[in-house]
């Protein structure tokens, strides 16, 4: 168990520092649907519909590839020593008799 802690705790701490935890926590006061008002009489923040994506499939794919490359450059990835290849992760876990601690994230959107 100690091995896991040594490996993971710094990585997780790096993630929390880089993941905008409080930006996500700030949502509760903005949950009313567009056009509706909170019952206390204070207007809720107006939510705008996302603009329509008019890009071609090729343009989207190029964007996804660029975003993925940018994601891999993030400091927290190198900081934590994360393995990003699923086959390699499983092979190493099997060889070393360890569990995988998996962090699922995305690169196609912020």
């Amino acid at each position: 168990m100690t091995d896991h802690r040594i490996l993971i705790a710094p990585a997780l701490a790096g993630l929390l520092l880089g993941a905008g935890m409080f930006a996500q926590e700030a949502k509760p006061a903005q949950t009313a649907k567009p056009g509706k008002q909170a019952r206390a009489g204070v207007p809720a923040a107006k939510l705008q519909a996302p603009p329509q994506d008019t890009r071609t499939q090729a343009e989207k794919q190029a964007d996804y590839k660029a975003r993925y490359a940018d994601k891999l450059k993030k400091e927290f990835i190198a900081f934590g020593g994360w393995i990003t290849d699923y086959d390699e992760a499983r092979a190493r876990a099997r060889a070393e008799g360890k569990l995988l601690f998996t962090y699922f994230t995305r690169s196609y959107a912020p």
Binding site: K65, W82, I83, A89, A93, L100, T102, Y103, T105, R106
Partner: peptide
């Protein structure tokens, strides 16, 4: 063992 999985939406990405 820390494994980071990134969903990319890239066609054919493993």
């Amino acid at each position: 063992m820390p494994f980071l999985h990134i969903t990319t939406r890239i066609e054919g990405h493993p």
